[in-house]
Design a protein around this nucleic acid. Structure first.
Ligand code: SF4
Ligand code: SF4
Lengths: 161, 161
DNA sequence: TTTATTATCGACATTAAAGGTCCGCATTCA
DNA sequence: TGAATGCGGACCTTTAATGTCGATAATAAA
């Protein structure tokens, strides 16, 4: 139960783009050098981000990537959804077991088939709740927040010197 | 980013034990039949649960498993920690990258090495927060809650007939 | 004490997913 | 046009989850 490295890479790539807003396009070369990841692999991740409308890409000389929308409208949840997919935190794998019948059979016979059949069982109810909490938190945190923090540190550095 | 099947099995095994509190010991045979999982595999999971003090096991004739403490003191988080391990939701994999130096170098030079070096960076700060929320929720939900719900359904069934 | 029963543990096999590489193709723009 | 750049499919490697087998140890009942 851990986020993949790809998510790590994606977040850092977006942060890099965010910190380089002045220059218009950042090539995969610069990104991969900055993150320490191979160009081939990182480009796959960037492609996903592009397909989901998080970044824009332009090929050709002086091409590269840029954020497709302001950093304060790119949430951590957005990024995670793109990379990790939208699979549920918990997915029952034995809904045909003897035990399931014990726990769930009752309702099925009483017109609650729809709500129950859709995956609202005793265990999943807890897990879906957990997922909702997690997603809520991740939705409230954007790339911009990291950029602000980074800039704050940067300028503090500048003054000090 | 999903809980493993083992977690699923563990939760259901515990629920089965909880619903069978009257009888003292439940063998791996009954459990595996109820869940539809092989005895070999399930027994490994049960061993983990035993090592972490969630269940007790006694070998020999009429042996088997039982909950090591009341079901209302076994939280979902307990179970998940046993099965999934205690690895963080997010673990930075490129803390030696050029970008990291950009984002984090400043602080290291100002006696904040300890807090920072321990893994409190801009990105992780968000992720650790997310993890805390998730864990908080899972800590508040116990096996007993599922048992109660199941018993409520059961008795409603009984009255109906 | 003997014996049948049961959990335990290590070794191994299988499968699925993540991580990573390569190369030909399409697109842009100087 | 042609050099630079991103795109995407095929493929390989590594890692983790899942699953099986068999030998061993512990227990309680007879
Ligand atoms: S009760 Fe829920 S989690 Fe358990 S077997 Fe049924 S559907 Fe799956
Ligand atoms: S800023 Fe944090 S997440 Fe990013 S490279 Fe440094 S330690 Fe890792």
């Amino acid at each position: 139960m851990q986020f993949s490295k790809s998510t790590d890479y994606a977040l850092h790539a977006l942060i890099h783009l965010g910190l380089s807003e002045s220059r218009n396009h950042i090539g995969i070369k610069e990104l991969s050098a900055s993150l320490g990841v191979s160009e081939s692999y990182l480009s796959k991740i960037m492609s996903k981000l592009r397909q989901d409308g998080i970044v824009r890409a332009v090929p050709g000389v002086n091409g590269g990537y840029e954020l497709a929308r302001p950093a304060d409208r790119i949430t951590f949840l957005d990024v995670i959804h793109v990379i990790e997919g939208r699979q549920q935190l918990f997915e029952c794998s034995n809904s045909s077991s003897r035990q399931h019948r014990l726990l769930a059979e009752g309702r099925v016979e009483r017109q609650e088939t729809e709500r129950w059949g859709q995956g609202e069982c005793l265990v999943e109810k807890v897990m879906v709740g957990a997922e909702r909490h997690l997603h809520q938190y991740l939705r409230e945190h954007t790339i911009q927040m990291v950029l602000d923090e980074a800039n704050r540190i940067r300028s503090a550095e500048g003054i000090e010197k």
